[in-house]
Amino acid sequence: MKQALVRNVALTAVCVILGVLIALQMKNVNLSNLREENIAELQTKLIDLINKNNELAERNAELYDYVQILENDKASGNAQIESIVREKERAAIFAGLREVRNYGIVITVQSGEGIDIRDSVLRQFVNELRNLGAQAVSINDERLVATSEIRSSGSNLIINGNNYSRQEPFEIKAITDPKNETSILDYLDTVKRAILADGQIQSDQYSIQISPVPELTVPALNEDSIAFKIDLLMPKSS
């Protein structure tokens, strides 16, 4: 009788422990699924940010030195006007206000007879050229700036406020780094093949030529161009 009681108590204890262990086990399974990949991803972000901070700190130090020089110039009345003029000139080049000439790539896009060229095809090439580090881009000699529109309106395509027939070939020019010629041409060729293989636009019968040019000219955009929308950027009241 006593033996049976001991046995039953022992069995009950074993079953209780078993139950607790099963519960613990389930809890462990349900715990967060943090993996090494999450840490690797975080680490990559961290390294990226550290590099960015180092670069920005360096830039700030240079900028600080330059501001000091300018302040000293101002105090001594001995301004380095030439360097300011040079900076203005550089900013004008960046802004697209100066014609530029260098090695580059020309992309000619033509659609089948009587078929309108889609604005999206031109925008895709322009976006890709920007991704590839193009420093100056034009379409049909319209220099593209940050706010240049490329949109279709009926049978025309509007760029910087000017109309171009969608049934005529479009010529995109871009000044790119000649050192990256092979990779840039390969990439653009991939883009071209993707466009030609796109089921939705296959019926447009596009013909696309991509070629490097030892010297091409990308014209300037006039500072009065509608593309700059200066009236919105510099209200008359200011």
């Binding site: 300018l70 301004a79 300011i84 700036v145 200066i230």
Partner: peptide, 26 residues
């Protein structure tokens, strides 16, 4: 500082041009 410096030295036009170009450049 550049603006003050240019105006101090009588380069008002250059100052305005520089400001204009900087606006267009973003």
């Amino acid at each position: 500082v550049i603006e003050a410096l240019l105006i101090d030295q009588g380069y008002d036009t250059l100052s305005n041009e520089l400001q204009y170009v900087r606006v267009l450049a973003g």
